[in-house]
Amino acid sequence: MAARVLACAPCHGAEGEGTSDAYFPRLAGKPAGYLYNQLIAFRDGRRKYPPMNYLLEFQTDDYLKKIAEYFASLRPAFPPPVPPVDSKEILARGESIVKNGDAQHGIPPCSACHGQTLGGMEPGIPGLLGLRAAYISGQLGGWRYGTRTAFAPDCMQIVAGLLTEDDVKAVAAYLSSRPAPADPSFAPRGSLPMPLECGSEPH
Protein backbone atom coordinates (compact mmCIF):
# COMPACT_ATOMS: atom_id res chain seq x y z
CA MET A 1 0.00 0.00 0.00
CA ALA A 2 2.83 2.42 0.79
CA ALA A 3 3.79 2.52 -2.89
CA ARG A 4 0.20 2.97 -4.03
CA VAL A 5 -0.39 5.96 -1.76
CA LEU A 6 2.90 7.68 -2.47
CA ALA A 7 0.77 10.43 -3.98
CA CYS A 8 -0.30 11.35 -0.42
CA ALA A 9 3.24 11.58 0.94
CA PRO A 10 4.31 15.09 -0.14
CA CYS A 11 1.57 16.68 1.98
CA HIS A 12 0.77 14.07 4.63
CA GLY A 13 4.14 12.35 5.08
CA ALA A 14 5.22 8.90 3.96
CA GLU A 15 3.42 7.28 6.90
CA GLY A 16 0.64 9.83 7.21
CA GLU A 17 2.51 11.51 10.06
CA GLY A 18 2.01 15.00 8.63
CA THR A 19 4.67 17.36 7.34
CA SER A 20 6.12 20.67 8.38
CA ASP A 21 3.30 22.42 6.53
CA ALA A 22 0.82 23.30 9.24
CA TYR A 23 -2.19 23.15 6.98
CA PHE A 24 -1.83 19.48 5.97
CA PRO A 25 -3.12 17.16 8.68
CA ARG A 26 -1.76 13.97 10.16
CA LEU A 27 -3.69 10.95 8.85
CA ALA A 28 -2.04 8.11 10.72
CA GLY A 29 -4.02 6.48 13.48
CA LYS A 30 -7.29 8.28 12.80
CA PRO A 31 -10.29 5.93 12.76
CA ALA A 32 -10.71 4.28 9.36
CA GLY A 33 -14.37 5.30 9.21
CA TYR A 34 -13.46 8.94 9.62
CA LEU A 35 -10.76 8.79 6.96
CA TYR A 36 -13.09 6.92 4.60
CA ASN A 37 -15.82 9.55 5.03
CA GLN A 38 -13.31 12.27 4.18
CA LEU A 39 -11.99 10.43 1.13
CA ILE A 40 -15.54 9.94 -0.17
CA ALA A 41 -16.38 13.60 0.53
CA PHE A 42 -13.28 14.76 -1.37
CA ARG A 43 -13.93 12.38 -4.27
CA ASP A 44 -17.52 13.52 -4.63
CA GLY A 45 -16.65 17.19 -4.19
CA ARG A 46 -18.63 17.80 -1.00
CA ARG A 47 -15.46 18.61 0.89
CA LYS A 48 -13.62 21.08 -1.30
CA TYR A 49 -9.87 21.18 -1.76
CA PRO A 50 -8.98 20.97 -5.46
CA PRO A 51 -5.73 18.97 -5.16
CA MET A 52 -7.57 16.31 -3.11
CA ASN A 53 -10.69 16.41 -5.29
CA TYR A 54 -8.51 15.93 -8.36
CA LEU A 55 -6.49 13.01 -7.03
CA LEU A 56 -9.47 10.99 -5.83
CA GLU A 57 -12.00 11.74 -8.54
CA PHE A 58 -11.91 8.34 -10.25
CA GLN A 59 -11.34 5.92 -7.38
CA THR A 60 -13.82 3.32 -6.18
CA ASP A 61 -15.38 3.03 -2.73
CA ASP A 62 -13.47 -0.22 -2.19
CA TYR A 63 -10.12 1.35 -2.89
CA LEU A 64 -10.83 4.41 -0.74
CA LYS A 65 -11.73 2.04 2.09
CA LYS A 66 -8.39 0.26 1.70
CA ILE A 67 -6.55 3.59 1.75
CA ALA A 68 -8.45 4.65 4.88
CA GLU A 69 -7.70 1.35 6.64
CA TYR A 70 -4.06 1.62 5.70
CA PHE A 71 -3.55 5.07 7.22
CA ALA A 72 -5.70 4.16 10.24
CA SER A 73 -3.35 1.25 10.95
CA LEU A 74 -0.14 3.31 11.00
CA ARG A 75 1.41 4.59 14.25
CA PRO A 76 4.33 6.83 13.36
CA ALA A 77 5.72 9.00 16.16
CA PHE A 78 3.85 12.22 16.90
CA PRO A 79 5.71 15.45 16.33
CA PRO A 80 6.69 17.30 19.50
CA PRO A 81 3.93 19.69 20.54
CA VAL A 82 4.44 23.24 19.35
CA PRO A 83 5.38 25.54 22.26
CA PRO A 84 2.30 27.72 22.75
CA VAL A 85 2.62 31.31 21.60
CA ASP A 86 -0.71 32.33 23.07
CA SER A 87 -1.33 33.72 26.53
CA LYS A 88 -2.15 31.55 29.54
CA GLU A 89 -5.66 32.96 29.54
CA ILE A 90 -6.29 31.87 25.96
CA LEU A 91 -4.92 28.39 26.66
CA ALA A 92 -7.04 28.13 29.78
CA ARG A 93 -10.14 29.14 27.84
CA GLY A 94 -9.29 26.49 25.25
CA GLU A 95 -8.75 23.83 27.87
CA SER A 96 -12.03 24.70 29.50
CA ILE A 97 -14.00 24.34 26.26
CA VAL A 98 -12.24 21.09 25.37
CA LYS A 99 -12.85 19.51 28.78
CA ASN A 100 -16.02 21.14 30.04
CA GLY A 101 -17.66 22.90 27.12
CA ASP A 102 -19.54 26.13 27.72
CA ALA A 103 -22.96 25.40 29.17
CA GLN A 104 -24.02 29.01 28.95
CA HIS A 105 -23.68 28.96 25.15
CA GLY A 106 -24.76 25.37 24.70
CA ILE A 107 -21.28 24.21 23.64
CA PRO A 108 -20.58 20.57 24.55
CA PRO A 109 -17.04 19.61 25.60
CA CYS A 110 -14.89 18.26 22.73
CA SER A 111 -14.06 15.29 24.93
CA ALA A 112 -17.71 14.20 25.01
CA CYS A 113 -17.36 12.80 21.49
CA HIS A 114 -13.61 12.80 20.86
CA GLY A 115 -12.87 11.00 24.14
CA GLN A 116 -11.15 11.92 27.41
CA THR A 117 -7.80 11.26 25.75
CA LEU A 118 -8.96 13.15 22.62
CA GLY A 119 -8.01 10.08 20.59
CA GLY A 120 -11.35 9.89 18.78
CA MET A 121 -13.88 7.08 18.60
CA GLU A 122 -14.46 4.38 16.02
CA PRO A 123 -15.69 4.44 13.37
CA GLY A 124 -16.10 8.09 12.45
CA ILE A 125 -14.73 10.50 15.07
CA PRO A 126 -11.11 11.63 14.63
CA GLY A 127 -8.48 12.20 17.26
CA LEU A 128 -7.59 15.84 17.88
CA LEU A 129 -3.93 15.60 18.90
CA GLY A 130 -0.90 15.91 16.68
CA LEU A 131 -2.60 18.63 14.61
CA ARG A 132 -1.36 22.18 14.25
CA ALA A 133 -3.35 25.23 15.36
CA ALA A 134 -3.67 26.55 11.80
CA TYR A 135 -5.27 23.32 10.63
CA ILE A 136 -7.68 23.08 13.57
CA SER A 137 -8.85 26.68 13.28
CA GLY A 138 -9.06 26.28 9.49
CA GLN A 139 -11.40 23.29 9.85
CA LEU A 140 -13.57 24.88 12.55
CA GLY A 141 -13.78 27.98 10.35
CA GLY A 142 -14.75 25.79 7.39
CA TRP A 143 -17.62 24.35 9.39
CA ARG A 144 -18.74 27.73 10.62
CA TYR A 145 -18.88 29.08 7.07
CA GLY A 146 -20.29 25.92 5.53
CA THR A 147 -17.31 25.12 3.29
CA ARG A 148 -16.73 21.88 5.20
CA THR A 149 -19.75 19.67 5.76
CA ALA A 150 -20.38 16.13 6.93
CA PHE A 151 -23.31 13.73 6.72
CA ALA A 152 -26.52 15.09 8.24
CA PRO A 153 -27.13 15.70 11.04
CA ASP A 154 -23.85 17.58 10.78
CA CYS A 155 -23.01 17.85 14.48
CA MET A 156 -19.70 19.64 13.92
CA GLN A 157 -21.43 22.34 11.94
CA ILE A 158 -23.79 22.89 14.88
CA VAL A 159 -20.96 22.95 17.43
CA ALA A 160 -18.69 25.17 15.34
CA GLY A 161 -21.59 27.54 14.78
CA LEU A 162 -21.77 28.11 18.52
CA LEU A 163 -18.10 29.05 18.80
CA THR A 164 -16.85 32.61 18.54
CA GLU A 165 -13.65 33.54 16.69
CA ASP A 166 -11.93 33.75 20.07
CA ASP A 167 -13.22 30.32 21.08
CA VAL A 168 -11.83 28.82 17.87
CA LYS A 169 -8.46 30.40 18.48
CA ALA A 170 -8.42 29.19 22.09
CA VAL A 171 -9.40 25.61 21.24
CA ALA A 172 -6.84 25.44 18.42
CA ALA A 173 -4.13 26.88 20.67
CA TYR A 174 -4.85 24.46 23.48
CA LEU A 175 -5.19 21.31 21.37
CA SER A 176 -2.03 22.01 19.40
CA SER A 177 -0.08 22.56 22.63
CA ARG A 178 -0.95 19.15 24.08
CA PRO A 179 1.67 16.43 24.08
CA ALA A 180 0.90 13.35 22.07
CA PRO A 181 -0.71 10.44 23.91
CA ALA A 182 1.70 7.72 25.03
CA ASP A 183 -0.65 5.09 23.69
CA PRO A 184 -2.48 6.56 20.70
CA SER A 185 -5.77 4.75 20.35
CA PHE A 186 -9.38 5.55 19.73
CA ALA A 187 -12.33 4.66 21.89
CA PRO A 188 -14.36 1.64 20.73
CA ARG A 189 -17.53 2.24 18.78
CA GLY A 190 -20.47 3.37 20.88
CA SER A 191 -18.42 3.68 24.10
CA LEU A 192 -19.03 7.41 24.58
CA PRO A 193 -22.48 8.85 25.35
CA MET A 194 -22.52 11.55 22.67
CA PRO A 195 -24.48 14.69 23.54
CA LEU A 196 -25.81 15.14 20.00
CA GLU A 197 -26.62 13.15 16.89
CA CYS A 198 -23.92 12.87 14.24
CA GLY A 199 -24.49 11.54 10.73
CA SER A 200 -20.85 10.44 10.55
CA GLU A 201 -21.16 8.29 13.68
CA PRO A 202 -24.28 6.17 13.23
CA HIS A 203 -25.50 4.41 16.36
Binding site: L6, A7, C8, D21, Q59, Y63
Partner: peptide, 12 residues
Amino acid sequence: PTPHGMPPFAQK
Protein backbone atom coordinates in the same frame (compact mmCIF):
# COMPACT_ATOMS: atom_id res chain seq x y z
CA PRO B 1 -8.72 -1.63 -8.92
CA THR B 2 -5.98 -0.17 -6.69
CA PRO B 3 -3.82 2.03 -8.91
CA HIS B 4 -0.51 3.62 -7.94
CA GLY B 5 -0.60 7.40 -7.59
CA MET B 6 2.01 9.91 -8.68
CA PRO B 7 2.73 12.55 -6.03
CA PRO B 8 2.12 16.21 -6.83
CA PHE B 9 5.28 18.33 -6.79
CA ALA B 10 3.66 21.76 -7.02
CA GLN B 11 4.57 22.69 -3.47
CA LYS B 12 8.01 21.11 -3.49
